[in-house]
Design a protein around this nucleic acid. Structure first.
Lengths: 335, 335
DNA sequence: TTGAAAGCGTTACCAG
DNA sequence: CTGGTAACGCTTTCAA
């Protein structure tokens, strides 16, 4: 447990010089620096983070707040963030703000106020007004992944555009009876879901077709359950599905197989994500790279840490269409 | 940004008294306490964590270190830990120590040494000797989930026993040609995988059958790919599979369906986990509750935070057999 | 029950 | 380029 005083003594300099030599900041003769560094190494000196924070006002720590951890998207974003922060020598404090829980309230009302971090990354939070106010009041830079807000920097894909391209892909294959699956079953739509539905709706409208919505929880079992219900009646069945995300899309494919509906011959399905499982289900999808979004968000935050509050930045990554084998022209078009 | 000095002034007391009144520790007259608390509330006083840490030596923060974030098991454990720590008002600092990465090395060699936490929870780490030594050297209580070590408290299920019971379930159905799927494709087995294989082996040996091992990556697509290969030849095909975890089991079920092998009529599959997707695939499995393991680990750690180093505790949760519709007697037994 | 003052381990200012 | 010393914001003796 040796402190900087021990290092200084061993190197034969003052605490001040030792500190300078180790933080690398100001001018120190190469000789002294060398001696101090050696002394530090020999003693296995590790600065006390709380003392450093108290003195500098910086924590070398970043807060990450997300509504779920066990969804593919969030876990990937988190891994990207973690790897990036690690590379910068920054710690990561995680807040799991599950919507509607007492824990979420405490996070926003108590935990964030402690400012244990130099900056915050909010992933897919969909904060209400009160929460957003709390977020801004902290007075630390905030970067958001997914979601949107006037005065917060953001990294995301263009959800509306992605869903629109997914729909257009099906339209180009001559589908006309295309349903949108997703949106959740509880009342208020998530911002993302709404944006994606809007893209679908636009593409359908442009092609002169009526939109059709199948409500589904945003999960693989959710998509499965809904699809089992909705696909069983062959007469009412759409010829193609735009799923709000790959998990729902894969659920629908599993359901279709269960019902002996051949995919893509009898039903086309397109998702958004390029989920870890997309390939094994031959899912056509719009690939978003959540890990890259995490990396981008972390880099963006890190770059603003030193500087004064800059204007919010908007960083949109492109979602690329990956055509696999879950989409094909509808049976009718192949007569 | 008011400090405790402001609170003290406003309440008309000294910093010392204000501190006592707020931390609740020592004797303060109810009247003063009340006045101080009001003053604090009015000013929106939030103690500086670094100052508190520096003065007390405690961080009110717990470190969590795991090898992956985007696997169902780990995400569930993490959610359990997070929820529990939150309830205790503790922060959570996350370390993603992916095996074989430079990041992992830095975590063990640099990040942990900073001791930003009062205690550490290690989940499924499988640390090597060097890493284990680092873990112990920190001088903070450590609780491990999964894995094993002489001098670290641990929360886990009995993996060997679970796999044994899974195998016995198949044996009771008259299966004799049962293969174990898992273990990864890289050379060194994970401790968990080895323990589960051992349970399978014992059950097979006790019944007088030869064990059979199908190597598979520990993931759903991994199980799928391996199963597509291994199940295609009807003559060499086992009648039942014990999968190292549900993800592999589900991969195998998807593969079987793909190959038009009816489950369970043509192939029985049993997993270990009770994964989120287990129900929709009708998977028979040994349920472990990773979330509960996370909760138990966090509670255990919290309880030891105040006290002096106690003897390591071992907390084994039971894995319950859930019979669904992926297991049935082999075709031969049904003549 | 309360107050004054001495740390906690660094950094950063101000002289030299 | 280096040393002494005052913060940083809180807790915790020690006295009163």
């Amino acid at each position: 447990m040796s402190g900087i005083a021990d290092v200084a003594r061993r190197a034969g300099v003052s605490k001040a010089t030792a500190s300078r030599a180790l933080t690398g900041s100001t001018q120190v003769s190469d000789q002294t620096r060398q001696r101090v560094q050696e002394a530090a190494a020999e003693l296995g000196y590790v600065p006390s983070t709380s003392a450093v924070s108290l003195a500098t006002g910086r924590t070398r720590n970043v807060g990450v707040i997300m509504p779920r951890l066990n969804r593919w998207f969030f876990a990937e974003v988190l891994e990207g963030i973690q790897a990036t922060l690690l590379r910068h020598g920054l710690d990561l404090t995680l807040y799991d703000a599950r919507p509607g829980t007492e824990g979420r309230r405490r996070i926003f009302d108590d935990f964030l106020a402690r400012k244990r971090f130099d900056g915050l990354i909010a992933v897919g939070l969909d904060p209400d007004d009160h929460e957003l106010e709390r977020l801004l009041r902290i007075g630390r830079p905030v970067v958001s992944v997914v979601g949107a807000s006037a005065d917060i920097s953001i990294v995301t894909i263009d959800d509306t555009h992605a869903a629109q391209r997914a729909t257009e892909h099906l339209l180009a294959l001559q589908h006309t009876d295309i349903a949108f699956v997703g949106g959740g079953t509880e009342t208020p739509w998530q911002r993302v879901d709404a944006a994606r539905y809007e893209g679908y709706r636009r593409a359908m409208a442009a092609a002169g077709h009526l939109p059709r919505h199948i409500a589904s929880p945003t999960s693989l079992p959710g998509g499965y359950a809904v699809a089992v219900d909705e696909l069983s009646d062959a007469r009412r069945r759409p010829t193609a599905l735009v799923a709000v995300c790959d998990e729902v899309a894969i659920g629908a494919i599993v359901a279709a197989r269960q019902l002996a509906i051949p995919v893509p011959a009898g039903l086309s399905v397109v998702g958004i994500d390029n989920h870890e499982y997309a390939e094994m289900f031959s899912l056509t999808t719009l690939a978003q790279q959540p890990r890259d979004q995490g990396i981008a968000a972390a880099e963006l935050l890190v770059s603003t840490l030193g500087t004064a509050a800059a204007a919010p930045v908007e960083h949109r990554l492109e979602a690329r269409l990956i055509v696999r084998n879950s989409t094909a022209p509808p049976a009718a078009a192949r007569t």
